[in-house]
């Protein structure tokens, strides 16, 4: 089954639409549900031109395709556990929060908190991601616990904050405080980033480029080969009695 949701032209400014109901599973029983623009409830077809092709009995066989100006659309794919969502353009905040299975593919950019507290499944973003990709919620508990997030563009600040499992790969640069507080899982940044793995407790963080503002409380272990490259390996964060591994191509302290 393929569900196509084409966003209708926006009538009221830039007020975001919250659409946590857009999850493949929900379309098994029709399209009669709501989204919210600010404090107003809208029927799905008030916000989107909806078309459904074919049928399915399980979420795995449902693909939802979103088109139009979806960069203000929040919470798409929240709690998703199977099936596929394809976003042809950009997507708003909190896409794929708490997701445990299935695939989300975003062709444009993603706004903040992509894959927050995700437990499984796959998110691929072809463009850039804003801050807090694959992070946790306020209060500093575990961030992403499982699954995979792959970003082909750049990532903002606080990427994979409190990462507790799963794999995050960013092909471009990442921002400040990359992998802060991470405790498990794997974070890979192919470009440069700032202050990686600050206060880390566990897990592994790879920076293929330069780590700027390198945290001074990581102990240098030596060099290692990984993925056909030479990395400098650090252990830390000692400030946090951490037992994490940080691998960087090179680094600069703020001395």
């Amino acid at each position: 089954m393929k569900v196509t949701l084409a966003m209708k032209p926006v009538t009221k400014g830039f007020i975001p639409i919250e659409a946590e109901s857009i999850v493949p599973k929900n379309f098994l029983s029709g399209t009669d549900f709501s989204v919210w623009r600010g404090n107003r409830e809208l029927r799905l077809d008030e916000a989107f031109s909806v078309s459904v092709e074919g049928s399915a009995d399980r979420a795995e066989d449902v693909e939802v395709v979103l088109s139009g100006d979806t960069f203000r659309l929040k919470r798409v794919g929240e709690y998703m556990d199977g099936g596929k969502i394809t976003v042809l353009g950009g997507i708003g905040m909190h896409c794929g929060n708490f997701m445990s299975g299935g695939t989300i593919e975003i062709h444009g950019n993603a706004d903040g908190w992509l894959g927050r507290e995700m437990a499984g499944g796959t998110i691929v973003c072809r463009g850039d991601v804003a801050d807090y990709c694959a992070s946790g919620y306020r209060g500093g508990r575990k961030g992403m616990k499982g699954g995979t997030v792959e970003v082909f563009g750049r990532a903002g600040d606080f990427l994979a904050e409190s990462l507790a499992g799963g794999t995050v790969v960013v092909h471009g640069d990442a921002g400040d405080m990359t992998g802060a507080e991470m405790r498990d899982g794997t974070l890979v940044v192919h470009g440069n980033c700032s202050r990686p793995a600050a206060n880390m407790k566990g897990g592994s963080c790879y920076v293929y480029g330069t780590a700027r503002g390198m945290i001074p409380t990581f102990r240098k272990i030596g060099t290692v080969q990984h993925d056909g490259r030479t990395f400098i390996q650090f252990a830390g964060d000692l400030a946090n009695r951490g037992k994490g591994n940080l691998f960087v191509k090179d680094y600069e302290y703020l001395d």
């Binding site: 945290i215 001074p216 400030a239 302290y253 001395d255």
Partner: peptide, 27 residues
């Protein structure tokens, strides 16, 4: 922009881990 690094360094020093601290931290 150097407060964080200085604070991390102080935390390590308070724990007795002075060896890894660079000669200067954020000035």
């Amino acid at each position: 922009g150097g407060d964080y690094a200085v604070l991390s360094a102080l935390r390590a020093i308070v724990q007795g881990k002075t060896d890894t601290i660079p000669r200067t931290v954020a000035g």
